[in-house]
Amino acid sequence: MQAHSHKHFMVVFFLILLSFSVTTYVVIMGYTATIDRYVIEKIIPTHTESLTAAMQFFSFIGDIVPAVIISLICIMIIYLTYKKWQEVFLFIAVMIGSTALNTFTKWMIKRERPESTFVYEAGFSYPSGHTMAAMSLYGIIIFLFWKHTRHAVARVSILVFGITMIVTIAFSRLYLGVHYISDIIGGVLLSGLWLYVTIYVYQYLIEKQSEES
């Protein structure tokens, strides 16, 4: 990779890291309490029976078991279609790393969840695990299938599908009252940072391997 690519990577990396660090700091200090309550209060009037059922479905899709099943299916498709073990390893690294980061950060911050009238959720609140899982899973799906697709319509479809899944799963956690908006923002930033780093390292190693062969 050229020098300007490394500089671009470092600039974006530190911007995302700074954003996550600031978000985490204001959460720890309690500065987000007002906006967190405001968003929850604004969402409550939108509750309907059908929308609640839909949000419970998307929240379930973002849970660990469905996410693992979807990941395994995608890994099989990637390997059987493109025969690239490097991409399989990338996929696995993204998902395992994202899960580890979420578990560690939750343990460090130990933020209590809001009280939900829909479902009971154990564990800590910040950052949102469902949001991180969705961001990592559908983010890497977008990246891998985009790079193997040349048709504009197919690429747009992949992008729209991935973004829709990320946004809907994240919103479902707000709607069901098991996360604050700051939990969602923290999850997007942390998983986005990890996704960005792993993809960059992957591309760097692939280019280096290509130059040496």
Rank of each mutant, 00 (worst) to 15 (best):
G129V: 01
H130Y: 15
H130M: 15
H130E: 15
M132L: 12
A133S: 15
A133T: 15
A133M: 13
A134N: 07
A134L: 12
A134C: 01
M135E: 10
S136W: 10
S136R: 11
L137H: 13
L137A: 05
L137N: 01
Y138I: 05
G139S: 10
G139W: 06
I140F: 02
I140Q: 00
I141A: 07
I141V: 13
I141N: 00
F143C: 05
F143D: 02
F143A: 11
L144Q: 13
L144G: 01
F145V: 08
W146Y: 11
K147E: 14
K147C: 00
H148C: 08
T149K: 05
T149W: 03
T149Q: 09
R150A: 10
R150N: 14
H151P: 00
H151L: 06
H151D: 13
H151I: 10
A152E: 09
A152H: 05
A152T: 12
V153C: 06
V153H: 07
A154E: 04
R155L: 02
R155V: 12
V156C: 01
V156K: 13
V156H: 04
V156N: 05
S157N: 07
S157I: 05
I158A: 00
I158Y: 12
L159A: 13
V160Q: 06
V160H: 06
F161M: 14
G162Q: 03
G162F: 04
T164I: 07
T164W: 06
M165F: 06
M165P: 00
M165D: 01
M165W: 03
M165C: 11
M165Q: 02
I166P: 02
I166H: 04
I166W: 02
I166G: 01
V167Q: 02
V167H: 11
V167N: 02
V167D: 07
V167A: 15
T168E: 04
T168Y: 06
T168M: 08
T168L: 13
I169H: 06
I169C: 12
A170N: 04
A170W: 04
A170I: 03
A170T: 08
